[in-house]
Design a protein around this nucleic acid. Sequence first.
DNA 1: GACTTTTCCAGGAATGGTTATTGATCGGGG
DNA 2: CCCCGATCAATAACCATTCCTGGAAAAGTC
Lengths: 143, 143
Amino acid sequence: MIGVAERDVREKFRRSGYTLTSQRRAVLDALKEFKGHPSAEEVYLAVKKKNPKVALGTVYQALSVLEEIGLICAKRWSESPVRYDLNIEPHHDIRCTSCGAVEEIPGVDLGDLYETVRANTPFEVTETTLVIEGVCPSCRSAN
Amino acid sequence: MIGVAERDVREKFRRSGYTLTSQRRAVLDALKEFKGHPSAEEVYLAVKKKNPKVALGTVYQALSVLEEIGLICAKRWSESPVRYDLNIEPHHDIRCTSCGAVEEIPGVDLGDLYETVRANTPFEVTETTLVIEGVCPSCRSAN
DNA sequence: GACTTTTCCAGGAATGGTTATTGATCGGGG
DNA sequence: CCCCGATCAATAACCATTCCTGGAAAAGTC
């Protein structure tokens, strides 16, 4: 099971007021097939294979709707376009600065840190994101 | 004292091999006067006041040189241009998503987290950055 | 100091990711 | 079957940033 159950999709669309159009469905499906962390451009190319009529702008808009209603999450690394992930469970990914590969890092919990942050600022904290970069094994050995 | 001693500046330039040109000096000075976290554009405008001939591209290049040799550090938040900070001690800042204000958060230490990350990935970890966003008190009350 | 080599800079054009605009199209309620 | 708002495709615009060029300044060399 790839995380997002069909009923969950319908439910979230219903509650949000957005309609579940074929384009949004296509974007979601494309994201499922990737399993990686594609950029908007890559999602666009994948969707285009099945339906050559979709425009890049539509994909961007669909992605932002899907993010807004909590079906996908967007990840930003410093020197790279935004990448999208179906996995909406809290987790952290590391990105290879050389080849761009993304891999999940298990066992990292921001809970305590979040408490510390909240306790030390008068701001209302809405986001604490850990951006992790490194070099993957194969790039390291390829040098 | 604003953190960066004159001798430190000279020393870091000497060791890096870059020359301490008047433009780079001007960018550094502008950054000192800000005390906040200006974007490249804002630095450019400040520098331009004293020397109208500098080009935006020059400011970008100067900033990247200054960052490379460790005199300033660059901070990235999700929906905002890169911002620069003279404070090169490890510390964390929170940014108001409404007005853009940046404020330091004391007492946050990524040491343990870094260990956990390293222990749980085959990647060679080069960067772990905490991106914190929220709403500042005045924006919150202004609603 | 004159010459050479290197680095740097101003100005402007180009790039890349993303967003805004616009007129057409779709789908559901009446 | 028509109206209305939501959605869409296509494309232009945007913005931060980088690249390119010829020329100027600085650093080494004799």
